[in-house]
Amino acid sequence: MANECPLLQLKNISKVFPGNNKVLEDISLTVNKGEVVSVIGPSGSGKSTLLRCATMLTDITGGEIIYGGKCAVKADKGKITYASKTEMKEICKTFGLVFQNFNLFPHYSVLKNVSEPLIVNCKVPKAEAEKKAREILARLGLENREYAYPCELSGGQQQRVSIARALALEPDVLFFDEPTSALDPELTVEVLKVIKQLAAEKMTMIIVTHEMEFAKEVSDRIVFIEHGVIVEDGTPDELFATNNERIREFIGKLGGKK
């Protein structure tokens, strides 16, 4: 039964910041298990806000967010209702978020960044958590950086650690907010490689990105957002062949950069 539910459903999400600043309007999006969805759109269109709303870092002002069939949060006319505390804890375990600027914990070693959340929040015994962290780090090509501190790593390595940190909690869905836009082209490649590897392993992912070639290659669907509305939601082929003038222009501009 549970398997048939989409992993994530956003229903008519809207977000209005104080001062009547409407950033998201009536966003609906369904993501099924194993799907990779890329979110593209111009700067300021509300992509980060969408991820922050979906991960409940920001309160929505309208709509409903459903994880695996369970309503996490619902907002209507200024009234916001979250699931109960225990339900929320379960729901929050089903997703992870990778930030543009990594947000690693600077006072923890690489190993501790990945293992500590397991120990503190999931009550996993230390030895087990570290074993798991080591396995994931090795998978992402970081096996000999376990005892380094974030400040001693390149941006690409830091981003891979932050991906490892998210993966350690075994989320069903992983969100990425422009995971490579703080990186040099070279380092971008190594991070994109990791994400492609995850896609091959059928990880469900929602990725905000400006890397058009990558989005085309890795995604099952691409969503184009502008001014806080979904303008188009389709397969990469559909999107790259769209008649919508704005999208063509946007893709052309980014594609042309290379």
């Binding site: 922050r52 991960t55 929050c92 992870g96 978020l97 947000n103 503190v120 932050s162 998210a166 909690l169």
Partner: peptide, 16 residues
């Protein structure tokens, strides 16, 4: 502020 965001997504409570 990103430290708080990261911690929240990783399941840390406010106190922890």
């Amino acid at each position: 502020i990103g430290q708080y965001d990261a911690a929240k997504v990783l399941g840390y409570t406010r106190v922890s």
